[in-house]
Nucleic acid binder design. Structure first.
Lengths: 292, 292
DNA sequence: CTTATATTGTAAGTTACTTACATTTCTTTC
DNA sequence: GAAAGAAATGTAAGTAACTTACAATATAAG
């Protein structure tokens, strides 16, 4: 079980790039997830209207070692999916199915990202962030900019001065004011945004530590001191927001939690102060964690 | 998959009541759970020192329909087991375990939220948002304010004028400028924030439709026209950001996807325009969905 | 239109699961 | 303790199904 292939996710990723007949198999599989694991190759071939050899090729195209491997992996993926989402049911209304789709895609993306966060970069980033003097979060474009804001929102609560900037010009200017002990945390799903690349280079020049959260092997990943690299498949449904920026926010949460555990006493005091400052603003007096 | 047989549990239950040779098989299976699913009947027989027919009989003794059925069920039981245990392996580094915890908590929260999104409110909200004249997203406090920004960031791409406000004073003022055909979308995890309650009441007074995303049975839920109500347990670990605001963002994604599907041709045109407007800004020219 | 490449299905080859039956082992009865 | 009956077990034949090779068909490129 060392190789982690989620064949459901893989099938969805490859959708549209299969050959004609293999796409028929994929369609049948995705439409009958629970049932397929119980069927023989011949039965699937008959249902999909293709030959048994095409079914076998479909399994190989997914990276499986053959039909048996595919069946086992599918059964596992289905079992895990059922655990989490209870599976799509025919009784669901249209909106309930939409919830399942959007949430399911996010869970799939989180699961995939989890498998990619296996290097030292998370721990390195936590180590740097926990002791730095100041963090400047940079992101451009609505999604990444908002991840940056979330970053600042998370880290100020730990008593670490944290700011977020979405304006490329201002990012450059801020970068020029940073120095050793400061951090630039640059967020970009593509890793190609020119302003961001420039700002990171400027910050490095003045001695700041640079961390990025971006796509694997991108330009941004190449120039940052610490690169947290995640590749997530693009969802082909243009009407559905992509899950990647929520995955990025979850990663920022990981870093914030890690940094908080590095300085528990300080964090507890800051949380207490924040709590106290909010008391008179609403009727809500319940204890609250770092968030809202 | 109708019959639910957890073969691991069954094997443990029958331990001691197997025949001599079948007990050897059971011992081998229980000692090598992850590996067994990848082995052939002959390989298992050789490892356990029995004949292939005994392995087959072992599977039948568990209530399986044969070896193939046994293999699939075992693989599923193992997969679910790994997920249930949170998946952390002894080999994981500290940061990897932190990733698993944070991501796992988010997935659990999404799963729980899914079970609560079963009424009509999502569809009602989609129906209103898809045709409204303007949406004003309101949130106070770092997390909810950022959910509001995400909301605006999602809906402007559909060609619907959308704005986000975190300043309670400004929210009141904006509310006073709204009228029939407009929407206020108020976000608050507690549902108790006084400014928010006031602003929603003002907007209602001037004919705007009011939608809220908040805790069940809260004051905010009570006064809004459409209430999307989610109760998520508070995480007792104060050093870990709570998952609720990411769940709220995922719900906003559901609404945006639903509204987009209501107006596919318009959305496609706006996405095309947005794409075109971004071309000269970075080296990234790949197709992108609604998001970044 | 022709040629090269990719896809696809048919069927032969191979593997492995299932079943039947003979043998061995264990349990019960006297 | 011995004999008879029942249960367990292994070997090998029978059967099913997966994999692979190759010819035929479809698609892409020049």
């Amino acid at each position: 079980m060392n190789r982690v292939i989620d064949v459901i996710t893989r099938t969805r990723q490859l959708e549209g790039s299969f050959s004609k007949r293999e796409q028929l198999v994929a369609d049948f599989v995705l439409s009958n997830l629970e049932k397929v694991a119980t069927l023989s190759q011949l039965e699937i071939a008959n249902e999909a209207g293709v030959s048994v050899a095409t079914v076998n090729r479909f399994c190989l195209a997914l990276g499986c070692d053959g039909f048996r491997d595919f069946t086992i992996r599918l059964a596992q993926s289905v079992a895990v999916s059922l655990q989490y989402m209870g599976g799509p049911s025919r009784d669901d209304s249209e909106s309930e199915q939409l919830v399942t789709q959007v949430f399911g895609a996010l869970i799939d993306s989180l699961t995939l990202a989890r498998t990619q966060l296996v290097g030292d970069s998370i721990q390195e980033a936590i180590n740097v962030l926990a002791v730095c003097r100041r963090i400047a979060f940079f992101g451009v474009g609505g999604g990444s900019a908002n991840v940056a804001r979330e970053g600042a929102n998370r880290f100020f609560r730990l008593g670490i001065p944290a700011e977020a900037h979405a304006d490329g010009y201002l990012q450059r200017m801020v970068s020029a004011t940073l120095e050793t002990g400061d951090v630039v945390f640059a967020i970009s799903s593509s890793g190609q945004a020119a302003e961001l690349l420039d700002s990171v280079a400027i910050a490095k020049q003045y001695g700041a530590h640079t961390i990025c959260l971006t796509r694997k092997d991108s330009d941004l990943a190449a120039i940052a001191d610490i690169a947290i690299e995640i590749n997530l498949p693009e969802d082909q449904d243009i009407y559905k927001p992509s899950a990647s920026r929520l995955v990025f926010m979850a990663i920022v949460d990981v870093l914030a939690a890690g940094a908080a555990r590095n300085r528990p006493e300080k964090v507890k005091e800051y949380l207490r102060r924040i709590r106290t400052s909010l008391v008179s603003l609403s009727k809500d007096t319940e204890p609250k964690p770092i968030g809202d």
